[in-house]
Design a protein around this nucleic acid. Sequence first.
DNA 1: CTGTTAGCGCCTTCAC
DNA 2: GTGAAGGCGCTAACAG
Lengths: 344, 344
Amino acid sequence: MSSNIGGSVTLADVARHAGVSLATASRVLNGAGGRTVGATFRERVLRSAELLGYSPNAQAQAVARGASSLVGLVVHDISDPYFAAIAAGVTEAAEERDTTVVLASTRQQHERELDYLATLRQHRARAVVLVGSRWEDRAYHQLVTRELDAYRRTGGRVAAVSQDRLGVDTVQPLNNAGARDLARALVDLGHRSFAVLGGPEGLLTARDRVRGFREGLRDRSVSGDVPVVTGAFTRDGGYDATLQLLAGGQRPGCLFAVNDVMAVGAMAALRESGLSVPDDVAVAGFDDIETLRDVTPSLTTVALPLRDMGRQAAEMALTPGRDTPKLIRVRGEVILRDSTKVAG
Amino acid sequence: MSSNIGGSVTLADVARHAGVSLATASRVLNGAGGRTVGATFRERVLRSAELLGYSPNAQAQAVARGASSLVGLVVHDISDPYFAAIAAGVTEAAEERDTTVVLASTRQQHERELDYLATLRQHRARAVVLVGSRWEDRAYHQLVTRELDAYRRTGGRVAAVSQDRLGVDTVQPLNNAGARDLARALVDLGHRSFAVLGGPEGLLTARDRVRGFREGLRDRSVSGDVPVVTGAFTRDGGYDATLQLLAGGQRPGCLFAVNDVMAVGAMAALRESGLSVPDDVAVAGFDDIETLRDVTPSLTTVALPLRDMGRQAAEMALTPGRDTPKLIRVRGEVILRDSTKVAG
DNA sequence: CTGTTAGCGCCTTCAC
DNA sequence: GTGAAGGCGCTAACAG
């Protein structure tokens, strides 16, 4: 039935079975090539392929053609709803362009990102979509840039969903502006004393959101230094940071967690500490994670069109042509919900 | 710098630059092969590779070796936390085994699963992990089985996280048993009147959970037929189904949604209808989605070790040898929380 | 230890 | 319209 070891039926098998040349079989089975094939032969080949259960070897095709149909997707953590949502957008766009997605989840570790980038390059992925905050780490940043450059020199395309620091097409969430808008809105709501759950040290997204929030407060002339407690970019990070804040004697009227996941952790911590949200402490987040839209009290946040962002990044990465990096800025929308309601 | 069109540096380039044969270059650059290489040459090759920025072409290697390092991951919807969590486990296990994950998100559509399976086969993925409920659809089931068989005949390995109907290694959540345990626990808690939000028609996981729940009630001699409203396996599905239930004049003391995501939707619907949880209506879910652990009132559910399940499935799929399909049953653990509390 | 030489499965000129 | 032949980048015997 098959001649090779792997057990797979090869194009040669089909050709032989159909009594035609390899070239002919190849032409009917891949459609392209310009040249067309006679109806009789075409039928014969198709029938043989069907009969033998032929499945073209995509890897061999890629080698012969010098171009693969793989697109890499690099995220910090696929189980984090933020990344999962973006990933969904990427897979959609990829599917529409008949490309296959290779998933790389770095689990928040710098080096892995580099490793995965290298792996993706080895697989000759046609493009890679890099999603997630960049770090405040010059040395590392240089390594990534170097790797990306090498990748692009070989024809690979790159798009990012992150800060605009990679010199590639990027979908940039305006973290600063969003947090700033949020801060103003909160002040306008009547809040006066704040504290921030700032995310991990060195993560630009966290930093930008903290800065933006501070600016917003300044815009509204809220004086005093806002206490910032850092913590992991996770539910537990928010939980721990909040307990730490409370233990430090702080009791802000409003708590801004730099992302929704942390905000939820914060709400849990407050609740367990006997504090009610929003009456004792108001809470606001960032991202508008879909799964979290139903927490109670409903969470005030800055909504980001996550899925779309992923889709757009993938589209840019998979669209040839353009050589000057494109930048799509995404301004989040402040959504005021119950978690920041002011009594009266 | 490079000779080929794609711009990539090839092994031949490195060999030439280092003044050694292709074989030698290959040997030092891939380590394996049994044979070892002299220190001088080894150094020379390494230096040249480094200098030229050589990146081995994984596709070509796969073709030559007759074995790829790809492992497919097929999920219903990567943005659904259930699948995202399992995916995280799969990527972990894959990474440990130096394999690259190809992600396929079918978005709940039968046919796409088949398409992706075919694509995965074309890429000669060494294994595929199929995650998600199977359907009650004989014709379709047969197609999938056929495709999987073809795939396995060519040496591909398959593992599933689902019902045990594919004849492959599988991690099987005991949906029936879990729901049954839950029902009993709820009755023991004092609940007497129930309704079920049953998920989409034809989805086995939904069906099993409904059945199990019914059995549990029977075990505890709760009489009467439990009303079941079907709906999409999503937050909105739970929301809509609940409204429909209420509109139908039903007002159960306890509502069992076949998964957490639906349960959250149900809670939202109840709240909007002016009903309080758990006082007016208790709510229970299934899965114990991490992101949902902090909803209020906290959700009673059946916990499944999602990440581990994904990891185990991937490990089975990537472990050669064994020819008799292995079955790992996972019994969920009932976790009673506030959403089903009984007053007094 | 090193190099030569066939492949691997497929595509793609180039002739007929 | 069809086929023969060379090449894609790499690996794996097989000789030295």
